[in-house]
């Protein structure tokens, strides 16, 4: 009976995952086929679409822009969040509750609403921000914040922060040295995992990019959107390339979050 049950469980799991994989698999096959119209099977296979995509300077530029924006906002987030969490946890532990509410705000407001709000706010600004990558970096920073704060604050609770800093103080280290030599290395895991997670999330972001910047600074997702009228094979190749990239990021994230033991 146990075996029967196991078989049932397995078939449900594999069946479902198979079902979910069909569209991805179809896209993959489609991206490799020369043409696939009225027939059951594609007429032939080719790397044409991938070659075309990967040699398209517009794609490479868009990809580069996306990377630039994501990495900049993540660096900004790291530089601001790491010392902030240390201050919260070491000096004002009571603030953690407030922070937990604050960091949820970017998610509480739907992107469409907040992007319109941001447009209104910065449209009349004396500094031209709307339509430039800088506003996107700022916005992406707020989106990365919850991921980063959560993961890093988890790392903080898993170490005995106060005792570690006290021990370092008694051994002659200043608070800055204690932070750099002891606390920071112990946050590495949480930091890396959350960085990769927010990175893959931000790379796929479309709403903010489209409304705040649009075609004036074409990111990967805007490029994909603009290419929707071209060959389906081409966009399939684009989607698959994007998938592969995200997959590698996710894999790296899980690897780092498991740690190096």
């Amino acid at each position: 009976m146990d075996n029967n049950n196991l078989f049932f469980h397995k078939s449900v799991v594999y069946g479902l995952s198979g079902l979910l994989f069909i569209p991805i698999l179809a896209t993959l096959i489609y991206s490799f086929s020369s043409s696939w119209g009225a027939t059951m099977l594609p007429d032939g296979f080719t790397f044409k679409w991938y070659t075309q995509l990967l040699t398209d300077p517009r794609f490479l530029e868009a990809f580069g822009r996306s990377l630039f924006i994501c990495i900049s906002s993540l660096i900004l987030a790291m530089v601001l969040v790491l010392p902030m969490i240390f201050v919260v946890f070491y000096y004002y532990p009571a603030l953690d509750k407030v922070m937990n509410i604050l960091i949820l705000l970017p998610f509480a407001v739907p992107p469409v609403v907040s992007s319109v709000g941001l447009l209104q706010l910065y449209a009349d600004s004396s500094v031209q921000l709307v339509g430039t990558p800088w506003i996107l970096i700022g916005t992406y920073f707020t989106i990365a914040l919850p991921f980063m704060y959560r993961a890093i604050s988890n790392s903080f609770t898993s170490i005995n922060l106060r005792d570690l800093v006290d021990a370092a103080h008694l051994l002659g280290a200043s608070t800055t040295k204690a932070y750099l030599l002891i606390i920071l290395p112990n946050l590495k895991k949480g930091l890396l995992a959350s960085t990769f997670l927010s990175f893959s999330f931000l790379l796929g972001e479309f709403v903010f990019a489209n409304i705040l910047v649009g075609t004036r600074y074409e990111t990967l997702q805007i490029y994909l959107y603009n290419m929707r009228q071209t060959s389906g094979h081409f966009t399939s190749a684009l989607v698959m390339t994007y998938f592969a990239f995200i997959f590698v990021c996710t894999w790296l994230a899980t690897r780092f979050s498991k740690g190096n033991e």
């Binding site: 005995n160 005792d163 006290d166 021990a167 370092a168 103080h169 008694l170 002659g172 200043s174 002891i182």
Partner: peptide, 15 residues
Amino acid sequence: QSREIGMVFQSYALF
């Protein structure tokens, strides 16, 4: 830092 006093904690507090 400058008291020259050593301490051992219940939680070990090893780095």
